[in-house]
């Protein structure tokens, strides 16, 4: 009730921005990861995320009806117009921090897409059903790495614990409720509904990984309203370099 195309477009953009920005971040590892296996899995996850972003942003562009497609939305917006969560824009840090970020985000995104598989918006539901299959894989691999690092050497355990601690302040933002109109209309889901499932999944892996759950602290929020850390601007300057230099480039 009361949710119009523009509202749905905004929601699709925030979902798409999460995937796009994390996909871009993971792409930074390409060719730099310590082993071939890690290089491949980070690049493959990045590819899935950019695929999701393409579907979601293309759809948002269609709903807007202003002639913007996924590429236009990805490459011709500046920092304040992005509504991704803050977690995904955080720098990669070391491998421990990258894995901790992936572990938290993929577990969240899996539950989100599973819930959105029943969205009353048929396109969002279809994208969510498709993406959930891929994200289940991301969550599994990231969880396995949490255990390998946490239950590994003294150094790997310390580094992944630091990565987890760094990322933890951004978790609460993932569970901010989107536009109430959209939840009421069944287009969006209130992530609070699956917070207990998220906590249970995280705690189970942390136990296996011999890692302590970080203490809760004041959440850092604002990404959904366009208030980003300084890191996003730097990321965009690289991602959008070509379109900024040659605004009407075609190939």
């Amino acid at each position: 009730m009361g949710a119009d195309r523009k509202d749905i477009a905004r929601y699709a953009i925030s979902l798409g921005d999460d995937s796009l920005i994390l996909g871009q971040r993971l792409g930074e590892w390409c060719g730099h990861a310590p082993t071939l296996e890690i290089d491949l899995f980070l690049a493959n996850i990045a590819l899935d995320l950019i695929g999701q972003a393409t579907l979601l942003l293309d759809y948002a562009g269609t709903l807007e009806g202003e002639g913007r497609d996924g590429d236009k939305l990805a490459f011709h917006r500046d920092v304040l117009d992005f509504t991704n969560c803050l977690l995904v824009e955080q720098p990669n840090g070391d491998f421990g921090r990258t894995i901790a970020r992936q572990f938290l985000f993929s577990n969240f995104q899996l539950l989100l897409f599973q819930a959105l598989s029943n969205s009353t918006d048929a396109t969002i539901a279809g994208i969510a059903r498709k993406a959930a299959k891929e994200v289940a894989y991301h969550a599994r691999v990231a969880s396995e790495w949490m255990v390998r690092l946490g239950d590994g050497t003294e150094e790997s355990a310390q580094r992944v614990a630091e990565g987890l601690d760094w990322s933890w302040r951004f978790v609460d933002e993932l569970f901010e409720a989107p536009d109430a109109k959209l939840i009421e209309a069944g287009v969006a889901v209130d992530p609070a509904s699956f917070r207990p499932a998220f906590d249970a999944a995280i705690d189970a892996v942390l136990r296996d990984a011999c890692l302590a759950r970080p203490a809760d602290r004041r959440a850092t929020v604002g990404g959904r309203r366009g208030h980003h850390s300084e890191h996003l601007g730097h990321l965009l300057s690289q991602m959008q370099f070509l379109q900024r230099t040659y605004p009407d480039a075609r190939w």
Binding site: L36, E37, L40, F41, A43, N44, L47, D48, V141
Partner: peptide, 13 residues
């Protein structure tokens, strides 16, 4: 299994 992700998204090594 050598690597969960292979030369394309659909394959493992």
């Amino acid at each position: 299994e050598l690597s969960r992700f292979g030369s394309t998204p659909c394959k493992a090594l």
